[in-house]
Design a protein around this nucleic acid. Structure first.
Length: 401
RNA sequence: GGCCCUAUCGUCUAAUGGUUAGGACGGAGCCUUCUCAAGGCUUAAAUCCGGGUUCGACUCCCGGUAGGGUCACCA
């Protein structure tokens, strides 16, 4: 909806459908607001359905006086057994058809709906009714929503006709299903947008992923900025069948967007997610190794980054033989502190490593610096450790033999 | 079950009557390499089934089958 509104210079309206007071909470509303803000989907108008009850009541009364709706005394379905006066819509039992922008023409009989309920009482309108009144009042031209609303559309059209509202253009998007092929829901693997944020995903990745589920540009391009999506998104290439959400693909999108970040932006985002300052020098160890920001946390907790902060401990077995480190140290001593970068170090060490056998030189050098079986290459690590610390650690390793 | 929608690799999808059925994710293999990661290359993998229509069907029609949605005094 946001994409289409922006593309056509329309207004993106956010309306909180909170007519059911029992289910509508401040937390849920805030979560929606937070999610949209995080994704960068700014809205042009904001409404809360519950604030329109006076208007709903007015239309309800009008419908009743016009004999298009009626009060009905019935036993409450809430289990209380009380007799309550609900409001039913007088169903004209017509065949209703509409042209969905995505699915094409849809024809449905409405007689099996009966005289459906549109309000619990004069002060408590139900969703289907409130939506139609609000859409009318707010000048909604396009209703873009999930496929789960297709079968609700005829009754909303019927209500619209009864109140003299124009029928908006409908577009029903395919649903996103979980791996179990069921509609994504809280109980079945669905996460709130804010939870993806908390798991360390980038909003660009989420947005791109969501856009590509159920829609494609018709080309082989997969990475799109928000601006590009606005330009090329269209209904014609929206899929008609539901799509199963693939978390692996989301991870890929996230890695792609992580790659696009320069060092400065990456460290800023990483720090703000992680909640504490991080040395910029840490980046070479992180870049290419992160899928989401949460991996930083995992790596720290698993001790994978310890060697950056502390002198590593390791066994002679892991080091294998450290005797060749004497020459490594000698060579490194010749580099000035200011020139101590990985290119220079590599240039100096590689000839010696090639001469002695790379594994005999590079492995112990790397273990001496990291204490790890797996780590980034020794040149990268040496640079971020600095000349003194590097030589220090190599000397320590030498003592092991 | 009624009504509505849908059906191409495991997943997301391209191909709107004529292609060796293409791409991406994931998988496998190889290369690169001191290890890991990243990267590069290669590869396996699909038109749900049955009838039509047509010189020719992924594509059009019909029927099955399968999947999804919906049938609230929820949204």
């Amino acid at each position: 909806a946001w994409l289409l509104a922006r593309k056509n210079n329309g207004q993106f309206i956010l309306r909180i459908e909170d007519t059911d007071r029992a289910r509508s909470t401040k937390e849920n509303e805030e979560n929606i607001l937070e999610s949209l803000k995080w994704l960068g989907l700014e809205y042009d108008e904001f409404y809360r359905q519950s604030e329109n009850v006076t208007r709903h009541k007015e239309v309800l009364n009008k419908l009743i006086s016009e004999n298009k709706a009626y009060l009905s005394k019935e036993v409450a379905k809430d289990g209380s057994g009380e007799i309550k006066e609900i409001i039913r819509f007088k169903n004209p039992n017509e065949e209703v058809s509409f042209v969905d922008e995505i699915k094409g023409e849809i024809v449905m009989r409405t007689d099996d709906l009966g005289d459906f309920v549109i309000a619990k009482n004069i002060n408590e309108p139900l969703f289907h009714f409130a939506v139609v009144v609000d859409d009318f009042d707010e000048g909604v031209t396009h209703v873009i929503r999930g496929e789960d609303h297709v079968s609700n559309t005829p009754r909303q059209i019927l209500i619209g006709r009864a109140i003299g509202a124009p029928t908006p253009i409908y577009a029903h998007l395919p649903l996103v299903l979980g791996v179990d092929k069921q509609k994504l829901s809280k109980r079945r693997g669905a996460l709130a947008i804010t939870e993806y944020r908390d798991q360390g995903y980038l909003p660009e990745a989420i947005l791109n992923m969501v856009a590509m589920v159920g829609w494609n540009p018709g080309t082989e391009q997969e990475l799109f900025t928000k601006t590009e999506l606005v330009q090329i998104f269209n209904f014609q290439q929206v899929q008609k069948s539901p799509a199963i959400f693939n978390p692996e693909k989301l991870n890929w999108f996230n890695r792609e967007y992580l790659k696009k970040l320069d060092d400065e932006s990456l460290i800023i985002k990483l720090e703000s997610w992680y909640g504490e300052a991080l040395p910029t020098k840490l980046l070479p160890l992180l870049r290419e190794r992160l899928t989401t920001f949460a991996d930083l946390k995992k790596m720290k907790e698993a001790g994978e980054l310890d060697y950056f902060f502390n002198q590593p401990k390791f066994t002679k077995e892991l080091l294998k033989t450290g005797t060749l480190l004497i020459e490594v140290i000698r060579l490194l001593e010749t580099i000035s502190e200011t020139d101590f970068n990985k290119e220079k170090i590599k240039e100096l060490i590689m000839p010696y490593a090639d001469e002695q056998g790379r594994a005999k030189v590079l492995w112990p050098m790397r273990v001496a610096l990291t204490g790890k079986e797996k780590s980034p290459d020794p040149f990268t690590v040496a640079e971020l450790l600095g000349k003194n610390e590097t030589i220090n650690r190599l000397n320590e390793a030498l003592k092991l033999g």
